[in-house]
Design a protein around this nucleic acid. Structure first.
Lengths: 213, 213
DNA sequence: CTATTTACATAGCGAACGCTACAGTAATAG
DNA sequence: CTATTACTGTAGCGTTCGCTATGTAAATAG
């Protein structure tokens, strides 16, 4: 087992690879293929290290995946938290969430789609931990979206009788659907137009929920 | 190799199992776990047959999966085509599509979510055929939804300047998102409310696209 | 220097993968 | 009956899976 040192000169032979760069490659592989479809030999090859180095540095395949998910959410997936926190109104926050998701999910510089949505859909029972972990991340997002819309309603931005849960559900469902469409190769322009369409759901302030024609 | 006979008395030893019932079990397994995460031994156990019987009757794992997808679309997934064909107006067709999808995807009598959306997300490169096949099915659905909305627009049900592609994209993205939420265990009631929310996107007839508040 | 610590490289573990060879069994054809 | 055809059960093929035992190399500690 390879131990970690906090700082200064570490006792033994130093790592012959950059931990961050190797983790980045693992993230990309897990992102594009998913947890179980990415084999340890796929990983070692992409990371440029041997199996004992992988296990010594990252524990095992499962912990490497979890760390890759953390890296995803702190890196390419950072847009979600930013959008919900940095925008002054609920509408701008949700619009930016969906628009930035569209940009990220269709960025040609990395795999298409959302790692949190797509990386652990098809798993055997042995990988239940991983499935539950990503399910938890999705649940966290849904709660954050709901909270942001509640805040907007409390601020009087939308009618008091707005069904916040349903609106948040529609927003996150759209996000998941956009992730799948991006994975399928949908153009960025088409995804943007979908976002514009979804944003028409945002309630008007007049206090009356729009009814059907 | 086991050959097929069209009718009448077949020459050799008869099948010791019901082909349809075995295929049904295979469909359920592929539906709940996905293509690669379902092993041939999982399949033979659930189908109650031995590997040579599976290979003799269905070809190989890939062809069995394809046939299971056909069975899914002709059975539990039949709602999609029905909704688009049987309803008199575009709005009722889309509403029924999403509502029936919600019922199907959260039906406790079979696996949650949509097989076409979820059964081949995480695959290795060797299963590219399977991935492309499901991608094609999704593309077919999107075209059908688009066509149905075009028809509605041509019939004057919605404004002539409606962005049909974007609307169809939003509908199918919602459908995919609902599939993922159902897989995650979302309640049927919450999904229904999401559908109601999404249906607020349906354009009004007055000829003026709704603007934001 | 030696001792200790840590990481690397090779090589391979047991198990599961998709799939099939082989022998036997149950039907029809004549 | 025998011959032919078709399916079944057992047993195992070669490969890959996640993971690790073993021995060596490269750093610090004293």
């Amino acid at each position: 087992m390879i131990k970690k040192a906090k700082s200064g000169a570490r006792r033994g032979r130093p790592l012959a690879f950059q931990r961050d760069a190797a983790l980045e490659q693992a993230m990309r592989l897990f992102w594009s293929r998913g947890y179980e479809a990415t084999s340890v030999s796929d990983l070692t090859e992409a990371m440029g290290i041997s199996p004992p180095s992988l296990y010594g540095t990252f524990g095992d395949k499962k912990r490497l995946f979890m760390e890759a998910v953390d890296r995803y959410q702190a890196g390419p997936g950072e847009f979600a938290r930013n959008a919900l926190v940095e925008e002054p109104t609920g509408e701008r926050a949700i619009r930016r969430l969906l628009m930035d998701a569209t940009e990220c999910f269709s960025d040609s510089r990395h795999p298409w789609g959302c790692m949190v949505v797509l990386a652990a859909i098809n798993c055997t029972i042995e990988s239940r931990d991983v499935v539950n972990a990503l399910e938890g991340r999705r649940s966290d997002l849904e709660h954050a979206v709901r909270d942001r819309i509640y805040t907007a309603r409390a601020a009087g931005e939308i009618p008091a009788n707005t069904d916040v849960d349903a609106l948040a559900g529609a927003v996150t469902a759209s996000l998941y659907g956009i992730a799948i469409k991006a994975r399928d190769g949908a153009s960025r322009a088409s995804l943007r137009r979908i976002v514009e369409q979804v944003m028409l759901l945002w309630p008007i302030r007049s206090g009356k929920v729009r009814s059907r024609a």
